[in-house]
Structures are given as C-alpha cells and as structure tokens.
Design a protein around this nucleic acid. Structure first.
Lengths: 147, 147
DNA sequence: CTATAATTGATTGAGTTCAATTAAATTGAT
DNA sequence: ATCAATTTAATTGAACTCAATCAATTATAG
C-alpha cells in the first residue's frame, strides 16, 4: 500500500472537485436549448424565480439563487433589455428595487417548458440517484446559509 | 393537489440548480484557506495535478480538470509568475506545451496539506453521504465525456 | 433630535469560463 | 513528397462570480 499524508491532496480524493466539475458540465448541457431562447443559464434560473413570483425584490431574488447583487444587477439589466422583466425602486423603501415579470416574460415560459426533460435525459441518473443527490446538495446548501 | 405542466420549471424541482449553487458555496469555503497561501480555487486544483504529475502537457491538464485552454492558459501564466511552475514548448511536438513543477511549487504542498480536512469539517456530510455524492458526481462526469 | 448602525443596490476589479477563431505543427491518404 | 485534415495552444470577446467598497436610506439608541 502506498499511503502518504499528501494523499488528501490528490484530485481523486476530493469531493469538491467533482462537484465543481459536474456543475459546469451539466450547465453546459443546457446551452444548446438555452441558446435557442437566447438565455444564459444564470438568466434562465432567474426567469424560473420570476415565473413563480411575478414580483420580487433584488435582495430576495439573490437569496433564492445564492447570488449577490454584483451578479444579479447585470443579469436583471440584460433581462430588462430583452423585455422579460422591469425594475422599479420601491417608493416605501427606496433602498430596495422590485423586479416584475412582463407579459413577454410570462410568454417565454411556454418556450422553456420542454427544456428540463431534455436535459434530464442527457444527465442519465436513475430516479434514486437523483433523489439522493438532491437531498445531499440541499444539505450542503442549508449548512452554508448558517454562519 | 396543484399540478401543472409548468411545475418542471420550478426551482425546487431542479437538480442542476442545487448542483450549481452547492459547487459555488463549497468553493467559497476554501477561500480563507486558499487566500492564506495566495491561490484561487482553480489554481489550487491545478497545483493538485502538478503535485501528482510533476510534468504534464496543457492538454492533459485541461482534460483532468475538465477545463479548456482558454481557462488553463491564464491560470498557468499566473502560477508561473508566482514561481510554482514553468512552461516549455515541447521540442518533439512543437504544438504542445509542457508544464513543470518547480521546487517552490513542491514546497507549497506542505502549506496546503491541512486544507482538505479543514474544509471537510465545514461541509459536514456523513461518510456515507460523501461516498454517495462521490459516486453520483463521477457518474455524471463520465457521461459528459462521451458525446 | 442626533449620531451610530444596519440594510440595500450599484459599482469596481480580478479572476474564471467557454465558444469561436487563429496559427503552427503534425499526421495521413494518395 | 504533397496537400488536406487534425491536433494543439493561444487569443479574443462576452458573460459570470464574488469580495470590497460606496452611496443612499432606514432603523435604533441615547
């Protein structure tokens, strides 16, 4: 057996590395489908929230997506340019900005509805593996929100 | 029950989204430890390969990390500036560039050896969850290399 | 009321990521 | 041997990510 204290630094012994690599690979799977509706992956998950919420503050949006305003602001500006959302500063608390889904944004949902099934086919996990993965990932995400 | 064909577009029904978010959150856990040795996460996993290989082509390095030359080149230039690697174009095949670990790069391993244990503690999965996650992620990664 | 603290979004800068392109070198088929 | 196809890195451009900082606003303490 060849064991050294440096084995912990081998790529094959990492858990973070395959997590990081798999995330990029799966996002890459979305690209052809998202290209067809002119969205990036970040814009797509932002629209997912908008389709559910219709109206939400930038702050709340960022919390749902685990992204900060430095990332959200340009994404929202781009979606506003495409006509899918509008932004308006709150009158009651001028520090906050609300984002609103437009009719055009609502209509886009129809074009996006087939995408999840198409990508799921490519990833090719069993239902059980999918569930296991889901649970573990949300365990990680719940831990991170703590400190 | 409230079911619609649009449920597949809800954030909570996605598998890719928590994968994408968890990957970023875990990478973020590394930051304080990596800041201490002046490496980014991408530079860190690149050094992991170098600690194992001592010498490797840019092509092979990119394949191991699932990154292309557009990402690797600036990372390697930065590591070269820090003195941890050198780069030299192959004499036998001048298309390829080999990367070499320097003594300084080798010495950095000693400073990095405690990092994996520190981060593992933060993520807080059980051994079984870790193994399940590992297997599923590599299943995803093996699928992606195919097409 | 006033000063301090906290919240919120925007901005900035460095680094990452990847598709597309370019340039050089090698390989393979004829 | 020659020319087309392939391989390899580098470059470019657009977008994402995040820490740090800033400015404006609101909340709280005294």
């Amino acid at each position: 057996m060849s064991n050294s204290k440096y084995d912990v630094l081998k790529l094959e012994n990492q858990l973070c590395f395959p997590l990081y690599a798999a995330a990029r690979e799966v996002v890459k799977q979305y690209r052809p489908y998202l290209d067809a509706i002119d969205l990036t992956y970040t814009q797509y998950i932002t629209m997912m929230v908008m389709w559910e919420e219709k109206e939400i503050t930038v702050k709340a949006l960022g919390e749902k997506l685990f992204l900060d305003s430095g990332t959200m602001t340009p994404v929202l500006k781009s979606l506003e340019t495409k006509g899918y959302v509008t932004r308006k500063r709150s009158t009651t608390d001028e520090r906050s900005v609300s984002v609103f889904l437009t009719d055009s944004g609502e209509a886009l949902k129809e074009k996006a509805v087939d995408i999840p099934a198409k990508v799921a086919g490519c990833v090719g996990l069993t239902a059980e593996e999918g569930l296991q993965l889901y649970k573990i990932l949300y365990k990680i995400l719940s831990k991170e929100g703590e400190e």
